[in-house]
């Protein structure tokens, strides 16, 4: 469904991504794990068109989306829940969700989709008129995910959804991700929580300083000595 071929990304003189290739098959959860500064966010932002790669190609459902503006990529059914949630803090929850459906001109369908998001995240319904900035970290993550779902993505990129959340909330978020996948959304999940993400993923990639150093079946990665040593605390 998504194919990234030998992508290089620079920030000025900094060579942040040094030739990443990866594949996300339809219907799967694929996870990208790695330490701080490895280049995970840069990879997702490049896929979404927020950053233009210096070289390399990105294909979504067979279509070359390299250099295509982000709003066009979102239209194709690929969106991202960015690192740090990036919700519109000074707007109420329902407006955040409306903005998620910006490209959908069918008001009735938007209302139905919003209903679905509220059903999935009941806490958002209770607070729908509240400013998004007043939500707790976990609620903000749910809002960020709900907002992304409003565009009906077929492929959803998630950047560290568990960041800063309590263990209970991390569990909840991961079970929602799994559920979304079971209901048909393909997922590319970036995480530092290697154990959790490998346990729900089908496939995994390990990124270090802009390169993929390990790739394979999630279960196998979970057992591999390198991953155990570097990311699972021995």
């Amino acid at each position: 469904m998504l194919k990234v071929e030998d992508v290089h990304v620079y920030y000025g003189a900094i060579h942040a991504i040094k030739g990443i290739s990866l594949e996300v098959p339809q219907g799967q959860i694929v996870t990208l794990i790695g330490a701080n500064g490895a280049g995970k966010t840069s990879a997702l932002n490049t896929i979404c068109g927020l950053i233009k790669p210096k070289s390399g190609r990105i294909f979504f459902e067979g279509k070359d989306i390299t250099g295509v503006p982000t709003q066009e990529i979102v239209k194709l059914g690929l969106t991202q829940v960015p690192e740090g949630r990036r919700i519109f803090a000074n707007m109420p929850i329902y407006e955040n969700l409306e903005l998620g459906a910006f490209l959908n001109k069918n008001k009735k369908e938007v209302a139905q989709d919003m209903e679905k998001v509220y059903t999935r995240f009941p806490r958002l319904r209770e607070r729908k008129n509240q400013l998004a900035g007043s939500l707790s970290g976990g609620e903000q993550q749910m809002l960020a995910m709900g907002r992304a779902l409003m565009s009906k993505p077929r492929l959803l990129l998630l950047d560290e959804p568990s960041m800063g959340l309590s263990p209970i909330l991390v569990k909840e978020i991961f079970s929602i991700i799994k559920e979304l996948n079971e209901q048909g959304t393909t997922i590319l999940l970036v995480e530092q929580n290697a154990k959790m993400s490998l346990s729900i993923a089908h496939k995994g990639y390990v990124v270090e300083t802009g390169r993929i150093v390990l790739a394979g079946d999630a279960k196998e990665l979970l057992e591999s000595p390198e991953v155990k040593k570097a990311y699972l605390g021995g």
Partner: peptide
């Protein structure tokens, strides 16, 4: 709404398809 979203966070706005 798009204007307010863009003034708050341009990248997040782009991810909405704006």
């Amino acid at each position: 709404k798009a204007m307010r979203a863009v003034s708050h966070d341009k990248q997040a706005a782009q991810l909405m398809g704006i």
